[in-house]
């Protein structure tokens, strides 16, 4: 029910092979180990990088989750931009978007 709890799930997932295995085996039950609201849970279950970004997840955690679910770097950047277009500006945290949606500063 908070950005902290959502971030904690991703932190556990990033650093624990055992957590990764449980997540891969059954995403739904893994998310129920954490007190998430419906929007947060759905973002994890759907692998909605754009929504997770808009909810304020720190990119240093989010980029590893993206890699875990098979999202390549260029797609990771684009899905965050698409998330801002779809859901509005980043709602919390430090990792706001300051470039335009059609701006690709590193060419990706």
């Amino acid at each position: 029910m908070s950005l902290y709890t959502l971030s904690k799930l991703l932190y556990e997932l990033n650093r624990s092979d055992e957590a990764k295995a449980r997540f891969q085996a059954d995403r739904e039950s893994f998310t129920h180990e954490f007190a998430l609201d419906d929007e947060e849970r759905s973002a994890i279950l759907e692998g909605d990088i754009g929504l997770l970004y808009v909810l304020g997840v720190n990119g240093q955690i989010l980029m590893h989750f993206a890699a875990l679910i098979g999202v390549e770097w260029a797609d990771y950047l684009q899905q965050m931009r698409d998330g801002v277009t779809r859901y509005g500006p980043v709602r919390a945290g430090l990792y706001a978007m300051t470039t335009r949606s059609d701006e690709k500063v590193a060419g990706l």
Binding site: G59, L62, T98
Partner: peptide, 10 residues
């Protein structure tokens, strides 16, 4: 730097 965001590369 603005790492791991859409700004990555700025």
């Amino acid at each position: 730097h603005w790492p791991a965001t859409p700004d990555s590369g700025k």
